[in-house]
Design a protein around this nucleic acid. Structure first.
Length: 658
DNA sequence: GCTAAAGTTGGGGAG
DNA sequence: TCTCCCCAACTTTAG
């Protein structure tokens, strides 16, 4: 029988704050006799998501700060961290602590939905009421999708139109002034140990992972775990988490009314680092230590009063939040498939190098990839570790690894470089590195931005390509940013700072750094060494743009069966991964892929389609279900071939159906 | 169904 | 130094 007065289990997840928390307000509105503020130490994040020490530290900061704030409101209370999977521990807690209401903030991430559905059904079975409130985004992503005709939000105008239907963003709710006591916190049930395999974070660990040894921590006091319990090295970032710091940072930003009212993302400098040119509030939003609605309304208050010329959506601060909602809306509609190409109905298929391995049992990418080209694999490695030989790219990647944060346009630069504007490597490889290293990593925003930059969704102007030389020069002609993060180059002349390989040997020696090798050596004969560029950027840029053009022409999306069964190869002139002209002209292929290719080649012969020329085959296989009107435009006479000037604009214009 | 314009954030040269 | 315009060229949306 349910107790007369509510006994609430408040489950913190994406909302590590006390201010503007609709879920917490809903819990307190129940006027409960007790409230247990808990956090479940979810093995999904410990083992299955990629998380480096910097983001772990940020999470621990948020938890410690939240716990202290809870104790400030009620000395008998604090954040109770339970080291067990929510799927196993919550049902036991509901019973052990005689809970009547389970309350938490809504999370529309694919994994979270699955987890929460499981937990909700357990709670229902136990006759525990469940209250779920939205508080993570400006709009409930599900509502946004509904207002967008049930479709994923794929552009900012769609978001704005949908938002118009939903009305104004909810005003922040007040911070509670007191909190009820927790009840008895004894744990008289079995502790279920999570399965540590597979462990994607083993590469992060120096020591054994021990955070699950005791349900309430080694001292039995529900304490926030430590990095050493996780077996992790200390964090290297100076960026720290927690609601207290978040609110202070927000105050500082808002107090600069001109900055707030005229902020325009494209004109902020990606080379600024001390201080950075943008707000750096994203990690706070990620952990929920800062409410996006509070930020939104404080910005709106400034805009209402500001008399000078203001920046506008989408480049202003409000626009930045709308983009965040856009990505959440896209993910809410597409689920797991949003974070990958395979089975993603809105992501273009491009035959990148280093494609993901897909688990045939569930269609999800496995976190492992095919090495179709050893050269691309080495490019990827050099990109990740900041040794490409392009100082701008290397400095950014080193800042990312060291500090867990880089400017948004810096992310553009390295993402474009890895995918469509340099290496032609699968955006999923880059997204995995960002997932590992970013302190503000958000599945939806990360996946969405990588699709944007690789021109596979959201954005299609692939001929606009970031140059690793011209782009940083615009805001940092002297190369302060590069000199800071690539200190071996610190004494290079300004003229060569973004292309040091062009410096004469005399200049290299004078600067105390030689440009040679592929990044393996850091010094030679006592002189520092910085790598030679790993390719001719302009040549790669041309190859990539040409290849993307070709992929647009083929016009497959991730959910096309051809993407899954490998027959997409028949639609490309070269039948190969990467921007290749012939079957094995570039990079080389490993045995597995070579075998696949041979099989496909045989299949092609057997199908009799070899009698068709490329145009006819494309028309038959890709455009087969598009409107008949396209036939005319697609005629071989009118259609221009790759490398022969402009494309037939209509050909790729219609969506290839499954 | 068509055309024109817009689309968060390119590069390069002219004035 | 800053702004404007062109370059070459994609999809989507507005009218």
């Amino acid at each position: 029988m349910a107790p007369a007065k509510p006994r609430v289990l408040y489950w913190f997840r994406t909302d590590l704050r006390l201010h503007d928390s609709p879920a917490l307000k809903a819990a307190l509105d129940l006027k409960p006799e007790c409230l247990y503020p808990i956090w479940c130490w979810d093995p999904h994040y410990v083992y299955r998501a990629r998380v480096g020490p910097n983001r772990w530290q940020y999470l621990l900061d948020c938890q410690s700060d939240l716990s202290a704030s809870i104790t400030k409101l009620n000395p008998k209370s604090k954040l109770l961290v339970l080291r067990e999977a929510p799927q196993t521990v919550l049902a036991k807690l509901l019973k052990a602590w005689n809970i009547s209401h389970l309350v938490f903030e809504k999370d529309t991430d694919a994994y979270a939905r699955e987890r929460d559905e499981h937990v909700i059904s357990q709670a229902k079975e136990a006759k525990v009421a469940v209250i779920v409130k939205m508080g993570r985004t400006l709009y409930d992503p599900d509502e946004l999708v509904k207002a967008n005709g049930g479709k994923p939000t794929m552009s900012i105008t769609q978001v704005q139109r949908a938002a118009e239907k939903l009305g104004e963003v909810t005003k922040p709710v007040p911070t509670p002034e007191s909190l009820p006591n927790p009840g008895d916190i004894s744990l008289d049930f079995e502790h279920t140990q999570p399965s540590p395999k597979p462990d994607f974070n083993d590469i992060q660990r120096d020591d054994k992972e021990t955070s699950y040894t005791h349900l309430a921590g080694p001292k039995g006091d529900f304490a926030v775990p430590t990095l050493s319990e996780l077996g992790l090295k200390p964090a290297t970032t100076q960026h720290r988490g927690g609601e207290t710091l978040a609110l202070r940072a927000l105050d500082e930003i808002i107090s600069n009314t001109t900055y707030t009212a005229t902020f325009s993302k494209p004109s902020t400098a990606p080379t600024a680092f001390d201080p950075q040119s943008t707000t750096l509030l994203s990690p706070h939003h990620h952990f929920g230590s800062l409410s996006v609605r509070l930020f939104y309304w404080r910005v709106k208050d400034i805009l209402r009063e500001y008399k000078g010329k203001q920046s506008t959506i989408p480049t202003n601060l409000v626009g930045q939040l709308l983009f965040r909602d856009m990505y959440f809306g896209a993910q809410a509609a597409l689920g797991y498939s949003f974070a990958q190409t395979s089975s993603n109905s809105h992501c273009r298929f491009v035959p990148w190098h280093l494609p993901s391995k897909v688990d045939p049992s569930n269609g999800l990418i496995t976190g492992h990839h095919h090495i179709d080209s050893p050269e691309a694999e080495s490019w990827f490695d050099r990109w990740k570790w900041g040794k490409t030989g392009f100082p701008w790219i290397d400095a950014l990647m080193r800042q990312l690894r060291q500090e867990g944060w880089i400017h948004h346009l810096g992310r553009h630069a390295v993402a474009c470089f890895l995918t469509r504007g340099g290496c032609y490597i699968d955006w999923e490889r880059g997204a995995e590195v960002f997932e590992e290293w970013l302190i503000d990593h958000e599945v939806s925003c990360n996946s969405g931005n990588w699709q944007w930059l690789s021109c596979t969704a959201f954005y299609s102007q692939f001929y606009r390509c970031y140059s690793p030389i011209a782009f940083p020069k615009k805001t940092d002609a002297k190369g302060y940013f590069v000199r800071h993060f690539c200190p071996e180059l610190k004494d290079f002349p300004d003229k060569f700072i973004y292309e040091p390989w062009k410096a004469p040997m005399a200049d290299q020696k004078k600067a105390g750094c030689l440009i040679k090798g592929d990044g393996q050596e850091t010094e030679e004969g006592g002189i520092r060494v910085y790598p030679k560029p790993m390719f001719d950027f302009n040549a790669r840029r041309t190859i990539c743009i040409d290849a993307i053009k070709s992929a647009y022409r083929v016009n497959l999306y991730g959910d096309n069966p051809r993407v899954k069964d490998g027959t997409w190869r028949e639609l490309f002139p070269d039948s190969a991964e990467g921007p290749t002209e012939g079957t094995s002209a570039e990079g080389g292929i490993n045995g597995e892929e070579a075998g696949k290719k041979t099989r496909l080649k045989r299949g092609e012969d057997a199908s009799g389609e070899m009698g068709l020329d490329q145009d006819e085959r494309e028309a038959a296989e890709v455009g087969g279900e598009t409107r008949g009107g396209d036939q005319e435009d697609r005629s071989p006479g009118k259609r221009k071939r790759k490398g022969q000037g402009t494309l037939d604009a209509h050909f790729g214009g219609k969506r290839a159906k499954k």
